[in-house]
Simulated scan of single mutants.
Amino acid sequence: MYQSLSPVSEALVEALPVARDSHLGAALQFFLYDTPKVLLLLTGIVFAMGMVNSYFTAERTRALLAGRREGVANVMAASLGVVTPFCSCSAVPLFIGFVQAGVPLGVTFSFLIAAPMVNEVALTLLFGLFGWKTGLLYLGLGLTIAVIAGWIIGRLKMEAYLEDWVRDMPKATAQFEAEGVNLSDRIAAGIQSVREIVGKVWPYILAGIAIGAGIHGYVPQDFMASFMGKDVWWAVPLAVIIGVPMYTNAAGIIPIVQALLAKGAALGTVLAFMMSVIGLSLPETVILRKVLKIRLIATFVGVVAIGILLVGYVFNWLL
């Protein structure tokens, strides 16, 4: 199915009353090719990660992190963020659960940064659309941001800037009792993950690919290089500033990234834009305001934004 996508999309465009070499023809071919491609990639990886996620419930994650020393715990937390099925929507209940379990504040932030930013959807689409080198570099730098940002926040000793009702909650013992889950249960969990995740993100995928198709078909070649190229020093901070207020996820933003790159935008600039959208989204910040005071939220946003800026410049320098 995957190998037949390109000829099938070309045949479908040829069957339409549209010239293939026109702007509309190029946009339609992009949309008809990328939509099933992304959905196939996503379905396969979400099924596999759904099975993996059956080993990492919220209770088990808290138990693994509670009582660990900072540094090692930050690395563990960021790594668990990659393989656990939590997004910014889960920010408040996860944050409360981690605090109750005695997980240090900086370690908690390492997890909360990595979970949305370096998730299976983002990595799958990056590997599938840009190749394994880009995917691995993004994974490494994303984890580095999560680990270092969490460690810095932990060193700043900002527990006083938790909301009072969170700080005063009684501590709970982080325990995990293994459940009798067999292979068929894990396969069922994989199928359920496909239903939940793919079922939830497909509108974002269609919207993102539609926008990307418009860019691919109608934006002149190398147009983006004029203000998103490697030589434009202010492009990376501008991309971060634009990305933070937006609300979408990796499934919706990566097809747009693909189209921007095809039109001459620098990889580091568009990835900084993507990371700011999914790692520093305004909705997540608003949700976290329920448990964090303004100074701690500002510190979180500032530290992560600096990390994303560095990633953008490193990508532009290396690639």
Rank of each mutant, 00 (worst) to 15 (best):
M1P: 13
Q3F: 14
E14Q: 11
E14P: 00
E14S: 08
V18P: 08
R20P: 04
H23E: 09
L28F: 09
F31Y: 14
P36A: 03
K37S: 08
L39G: 02
L40I: 15
I45N: 07
A48E: 02
V52A: 13
V52H: 07
N53I: 09
F56Q: 10
A63F: 02
A66D: 00
A73V: 05
V75I: 14
A77T: 04
A77M: 06
S79I: 09
V83F: 14
S90Q: 12
L94W: 04
V103H: 06
P104M: 00
F109T: 01
A115Y: 11
V118D: 03
L123E: 04
L129R: 06
F130R: 01
F130C: 04
F130N: 00
W132V: 12
K133W: 12
T134Y: 07
L141G: 00
L141N: 00
G142N: 05
T144I: 09
G154T: 05
R155T: 08
K157V: 01
M158E: 09
A160C: 09
A160P: 05
E163D: 13
E163N: 11
A174F: 09
A174C: 13
R186Y: 13
S193Y: 15
R195C: 15
I197V: 15
I197M: 15
W202V: 10
A213Q: 01
G214V: 10
I215T: 01
H216G: 02
Y218C: 05
P220C: 12
Q221I: 10
F223K: 04
F223N: 00
G229D: 11
K230W: 04
D231N: 12
W233K: 01
I241K: 10
Q258P: 00
L260M: 15
K263P: 03
V270A: 11
V270R: 03
A272D: 06
S276P: 11
S276E: 07
L282M: 10
P283W: 15
V286M: 15
V303K: 01
I306E: 03
I308Q: 01
F315Q: 00
